[in-house]
């Protein structure tokens, strides 16, 4: 009876153990894995530069995924994990570049493009205003053409 009770008491821990996930050598809860994936999705793999760390098969990406997961399990805030990466690889590691003097032109581009478009539209309209009035010779020729 006591043994059965003990087993029953252990049942929830069994369910808990089954819920744990292991990736890149780190065991964690699914919520932690989701958080780690969200972080990894924002980081560029340095080896295959158009993939995120989450998508890449490169060994370095796997190591960095392991580091992210270890820190997530430790409860390190997202920002500190990002800073860890930026400190080592520069802002290039961020798939979404931060707003800084270096990226002002990049972020200003949509507004600049819109302004250029508006300017082109305005200049185009101004030129194609009402045509100049006809002089006597032109009026006479128009008369002839209309009568034909």
């Amino acid at each position: 009876m006591r043994r059965l009770l003990l087993l029953l008491a252990l049942l929830p821990t069994l369910a808990f153990a089954q819920d744990m996930v292991t990736r890149d050598g780190v065991t964690m809860t699914p919520a932690q894995e989701t958080r780690a994936e969200a972080i990894g999705d924002q980081l560029r793999c340095l080896v295959c530069q158009n993939e995120s760390i989450e998508d890449s098969n490169a060994k370095l990406a796997a190591q960095l995924r392991g580091i992210i997961r270890t820190q997530v399990v430790k409860g390190v805030p997202d920002k500190n994990i990002m800073d860890y990466m930026v400190q080592r690889y520069g802002i290039f590691v961020l798939l979404k570049p931060p707003v800084s003097p270096l990226t002002w032109l990049l972020y200003a581009m949509p507004v600049l493009a819109l302004l250029c478009g508006l300017a082109a539209f305005w200049f185009g309209r101004r030129k194609s205003g009402a045509p100049a009035p006809l002089d006597d010779a032109e009026a006479a020729r128009l008369e002839v053409l209309l009568r034909e």
Partner: peptide, 8 residues
């Protein structure tokens, strides 16, 4: 290597 930022 990771601490140095070596990527290859």
């Amino acid at each position: 290597a990771i601490n140095w930022g070596v990527y290859g």
